[in-house]
């Protein structure tokens, strides 16, 4: 009896809470109707362009027919996923996607930090400003132009890299048609384009490091390199950790554009990743259900990676995104 009464009591409490929230909303709507009117188009946009496609993900489990629509098409369970896992290029795609990201992370993550640290100790303020400004510039150049420049500079015979090889008597290499050069080209040109920009956030947090710590270190006889390691790095650790988690989360989302643009028939074994594959089977071959399944596989792994990275960091470094 008592238990039932408690249950009833709880129920009514919950109901009261519900109606409370509802009433609060109604009251707020009357008071702040302008705010609701403002945010309405934004919410509609998110529903149409973000949440409706999420519902469309159901296609990954269906034999999608345009005429039948998403609801009407028959379920096929995990057929598309099995097809992908057994595809002849599954391993290749997975390996390329992971390798390009891991390589990019291993090299591309520390370099902006080192760059920011070194820039921070540059004595000549004028040079410091110049280097900073010039290093941001490539970030604003479009991917198409960057890839165009890559193909010019990497061109056989006439490109600068081959001209330089010629100075040392080495023979000309057609870099862009060699699969084994693709990852280096992809990663290092990415660093050229992005390192200045990625370093801004570190430069700004280095500017916030307490100078008293440096003075104390100087009194203790620390060299500049020692100050970098024992004063600067620990001070900007939270920033580093935050960016690392974010990067881990996008480990599987290799930028589509650059791989797509640099791809050709000769280097394709290295220059095809999951995102270019979804484009190929989806938009070129119109294999909608399958392409959606491949894309879903990719984004689920992404979310898992993000959550795992966040969890790991939370445990060991006491920092987290959420």
């Amino acid at each position: 009896m008592d238990q039932i009464r408690i249950k009833q009591k709880n129920g009514s409490l919950l109901q009261r809470l519900h109606s409370n929230l509802f009433q609060r909303l109604l009251k707020d709507m009357r008071k702040n109707w302008i705010l609701y009117a403002m945010i309405l188009p934004v919410v509609v946009w998110f529903l149409i362009f973000c949440y409706k496609p999420m519902y469309g993900v159901l296609m990954a489990f269906k034999d999608y027919k345009v005429k039948l629509g998403i609801m009407g098409s028959p379920w096929v369970g995990l057929k598309h996923f099995q097809r992908f896992f057994h595809a002849y290029n599954f391993k290749l795609l997975l390996r390329n996607t992971l390798w390009l990201s891991v390589y990019n992370l291993l090299v591309g993550f520390p370099i902006p930090i080192v760059f920011a640290l070194m820039l921070n100790y540059l004595k000549n303020k004028y040079l410091k400003k110049t280097v900073q400004m010039v290093s941001y510039a490539p970030y604003f150049i479009s991917t198409v132009v960057i890839c165009g420049m890559i193909s010019i500079f990497m061109a056989p015979d006439t490109g600068i890299f081959n001209t330089m090889r010629a100075w040392f008597g080495a023979e000309s290499v057609d870099f862009l048609s060699k699969p084994n050069w693709f990852d280096d080209i992809y990663v290092w040109t990415g660093i050229w384009q992005g390192m200045g920009w990625s370093s801004i956030i570190y430069i700004s947090s280095l500017a916030g490091v307490d100078y008293e710590l440096h003075e104390a270190a100087i009194v203790d006889g620390a060299t500049k390199i020692q100050r970098m390691i024992h004063v600067d790095l620990p001070s900007i650790k939270p920033t580093i950790v935050m960016l690392l988690i974010l990067q881990m989360g996008s480990l599987m989302s290799v930028g589509f554009e650059k791989v797509f643009l640099l791809q050709n028939n000769l280097n394709k074994s290295a220059a095809s990743v999951i995102s270019t594959y979804t484009y190929e089977v989806g938009l070129i071959n119109s294999d909608y259900g399958y392409s959606t399944a491949v894309g879903l596989f990719n984004s689920v792994i992404n979310v898992l990676l993000l959550v795992t990275a966040n969890q790991i960091v939370k445990k060991f470094a006491d920092e987290s995104l959420f």
């Binding site: 909303l25 998110f46 496609p53 993900v57 484009y279 989806g282 959606t292 990719n298």
Partner: peptide
């Protein structure tokens, strides 16, 4: 509803429908 909308918007940063569902919309 500030928190609710914030979550609704931020969720899309981490998960999306992908190429084909967006294309069909």
């Amino acid at each position: 509803p500030r928190r609710f909308f914030l979550w609704m918007f931020m969720f899309t940063m981490y998960f999306g429908g992908g190429l084909i569902p967006s294309y069909l919309v």
